[in-house]
Nucleic acid binder design. Structure first.
Length: 443
DNA sequence: TCTGGGGTCCTAGGACCC
DNA sequence: TCTGGGGTCCTAGGACCC
């Protein structure tokens, strides 16, 4: 999509998102979960990231740690699931494919949301929106809401209205709303419900007497830019119907590759931390190989719990790599060595990992020379290559073909998960992405 | 006992250059 | 001896989002 198409007048912007996406995905394959309170947990079964309406009605808030809602399983029949990103990713692709058929353009915004361009009269657009809901229900089996307006920020708001008002049947076309009703809603909805206004900005705005969407809409954009930034100024303009948030470029070349995770058990010893760094450095190297990219900067991090009373420690270091590389041996040894010098054995580290940045599509000359830049294995035999370089090359090729679990250096090469690896106690099957785990149907 | 992870965008400030 | 200022690039940190 070009920048022009997003700013040209005469067409509407729809924001379509799946209600309680992760929970809805789980329900498609386990109908027994319908009409029951269900939550999906974050990585490591840490806290609640998705809730069914019934779970919301129990007062469960998003972000609440699992241990605080555990008892509700017994007392209120709460169902708990670990997050299953393979399943959600696949379901997302199906939803987005269907949505794409309806828009004059489509911009996938997140795993469960997409902006769409819709044309026609307001009534026709409302009909399209209802058609979208029906099509997604039929093809994928999850419920969506559709908000339609003239800008992205207003489409987000309309979507919010559609969700909060059951009588709208999941569709809100702002232009078809009764103006007095709309004005009332805008005067009641807090400014922090606006897309792009978080809690910090919200409390600063409150100090200026701006608390509702209506009040932010009426604010002076120039003054807002001065007190805040161009970001919030754009929000004000968008609330007034001026399109100024352009398309987010579809980028396969994201700026960084990150593998940081919480551990199921605290890591205390150098030995275990070496295993962590080695494991994630190799994961990151393998990701680069699959994307055909190279890194020039590596960051290693670890951290103790912010909630624990013990000694706090957040070791972190940036390592400028000697060349643009994705060599797993080099990355692993640098990551292990850097963290070795930073961590204090005896502390309870609860998370850690590796971030690669400064990414490019081209290896440095030296990398090419070593044969590490090749993806198809047509590396010329070079007398100067050491055993280590040959191993690097071989590891890259195997992970490219068979995935990062197929081979590894040191303890990572052992198929068994390390004992600090992430908890996923309540995981559902990979119903759509693994032949072994397809759902069985009996008639 | 037990509290996520992976991103984006913007701004301010420092280093460096001419 | 006179000791400016604008532009660019990079990075760290803040804020936000899902």
């Amino acid at each position: 999509m070009s920048a022009e198409s997003a700013t040209r007048g005469g067409e509407y912007i729809a924001l379509v998102d799946v209600n309680n996406f992760y929970v809805s995905c789980e329900r498609v394959f386990d109908p027994a979960l319908r009409h029951r309170p269900v939550v999906v947990l974050s990585n490591n079964d840490g806290c609640v990231v998705a809730r069914s309406q019934e779970a919301k009605d129990l007062g469960i808030t998003t972000g609440v740690p699992y241990f605080k809602v555990r008892d509700l399983q017994q007392s209120h029949g709460l169902v708990v699931r670990s997050s299953n990103y393979e399943l959600y990713g696949d379901m997302s692709a199906r939803v987005m494919e269907v949505l794409g058929r309806f828009g004059t353009w489509q911009e996938v915004y997140s795993i469960d949301e997409s902006f769409l361009g819709l044309t026609g009269s307001p009534v026709q657009v409302q009909r399209s929106a209802a058609g979208i809901r029906a099509a997604i229900h039929q093809a994928v089996g999850v419920p969506v809401c559709v908000g339609v307006s003239s800008t992205k920020t207003l489409a987000k708001f309309a979507n919010h209205v559609a969700k909060k008002n059951p009588n709208l049947a999941g569709v809100c076309v702002e232009e078809l709303m009764e103006p007095s009703v709309l004005a009332r809603i805008k005067s009641l909805v807090p400014v922090t419900d606006v897309w792009g206004v978080g809690s910090k900005t919200g409390s600063k705005l409150a100090g200026m007497g701006i608390q509702s969407i209506a009040e932010l809409t009426a604010a002076d954009p120039q003054a807002i830019r001065k007190r805040f930034s161009v970001v919030l100024q754009r929000t004000v303009l968008e609330l007034n119907g001026t399109r100024c948030i352009g398309p987010v470029e579809e980028r396969s070349d994201k700026g960084q590759v990150m593998f940081t995770r919480s551990f199921s058990h605290p890591v205390r010893s150098r030995e275990q931390m070496r295993e962590v760094m080695s494991y994630y450095a190799q994961k990151a190297a393998s990701r680069l190989a699959s994307e055909g990219r190279y890194a020039s900067l590596m960051t290693v991090t670890a951290g103790t719990s912010r909630f624990a009373s013990g000694q706090q420690s957040f070791p972190s270091a940036q390592i400028r790599l000697p060349r643009a590389t994705r060599d797993p041996i080099l990355l692993t040894s640098l990551a292990v060595k850097a963290m070795d010098g930073l961590m204090e054995p005896g502390n309870d580290y609860v998370r850690g990992g590796v971030i690669l940045s400064g990414l490019s599509d081209e290896p440095d000359a030296e990398e090419l020379e070593l044969g590490l830049g090749h993806t198809e294995g047509e590396r010329p035999a070079s007398a100067g290559n050491t055993g280590g370089e040959r191993i690097s090359h071989m590891v890259q090729q195997v992970t490219q073909r068979f995935g990062s679990r197929a081979i590894g250096l040191g303890r990572t090469g052992i198929a068994q998960e390390p004992d600090w690896s992430m908890k996923r106690e309540f995981i559902s099957q990979r119903y759509t992405t693994d032949w072994e785990e397809l759902p069985a149907v009996r008639a």
